[in-house]
Design a binder for these strands. Sequence first.
DNA 1: TAGAACATGTAACCAGTTACATGATTAG
DNA 2: CTAATCATGTAACTGGTTACATGTTCTA
Lengths: 179, 179
Amino acid sequence: MALEHAILVSLAEQAATGYDLARRFDASIGYFWRASHQQIYKTLARMEADGWVSATIEPREGTADKKTYAITDAGREELTRFSAEPSPREALRSDFAVKLRGLADVAAIVEDTRRRRADHVERLDRYEASAKRHYPDPAAIEEHERGAYLALRGGILSERTGIAWCDEILGQLETRSER
Amino acid sequence: MALEHAILVSLAEQAATGYDLARRFDASIGYFWRASHQQIYKTLARMEADGWVSATIEPREGTADKKTYAITDAGREELTRFSAEPSPREALRSDFAVKLRGLADVAAIVEDTRRRRADHVERLDRYEASAKRHYPDPAAIEEHERGAYLALRGGILSERTGIAWCDEILGQLETRSER
DNA sequence: TAGAACATGTAACCAGTTACATGATTAG
DNA sequence: CTAATCATGTAACTGGTTACATGTTCTA
């Protein structure tokens, strides 16, 4: 379970509210870990109880207090411990591959594949734009950015592969479904 | 939730016991959907209640009856319905990418990356061996095998990408951690 | 003044994991 | 005789999703 650790990584870079974190999980960190605000709030509460983060409370009238979370020393220790531990192989679960394997409705799969392809292209564009903006010269990457850069590279490689797979599928199925 | 559908795809090919399914989920179908036997038994019970599968019971003395499941017409209908529905984009969750992004312990990540690379290589070998055995001539693939072939191709492409990513990570981190 | 952005949560539910538990049959 | 394989389950827990719920502040 890495949501806690993803939050720690994020807070290690910069303290934040649950709301801020939810937005970060819609962008950079969210490239490789998705999380809803509900889950983030729940997890932050647990992490605070565990002493991994501490909240600075800004009281507000008429509505819930604003809480800005920062990583604690215990949180930093936990992050180090997590880093040293071998990471489990991702469980692969793909509705699409199941569907493809069944191949019950070629026309529907072709349509689905086109949509997926467009989605991969859109993500690839975002990742490449991000890479260009943040790391215009890959040879000049500073040590503190290297992790983020390599993670982004993983995203780029995987979106490209997604596109290639879709193209292969479409190449084999398209003509069949349209004639 | 595609476990039910993965089971339907599998049963559409061949009737099976829960145990058989668990083994299939360790092999072919398991290339893109993992499931434990506990979960398979639980799901089969629900699917039987829903009328998607029917069980032929072989009573056994002293231990639980053996149940062989077959897909029903309702199950086949459900599979068609599922096939026509757009598939949700896979939620990406990677402990490894979170760790990489944090980059708290370079030596540990290098070690982890080497392990992941070896794992990718092993899987790629299995997939390629399977492709060679089942589809020696890609030009001569029959329509009923095309889905399985394309799913396997997805596995091959993604393992290759995994290896390439690991190589890129190792290329950038290895020298740093060893000197 | 309306809608977007900021901000925080609860409750019910569901899928999946881990641990536990049993027993028969077959091959070496 | 022993280990692997065949075969089926229950129970407790955890992580994540969906639906619901509220209120403020800023900007066009």
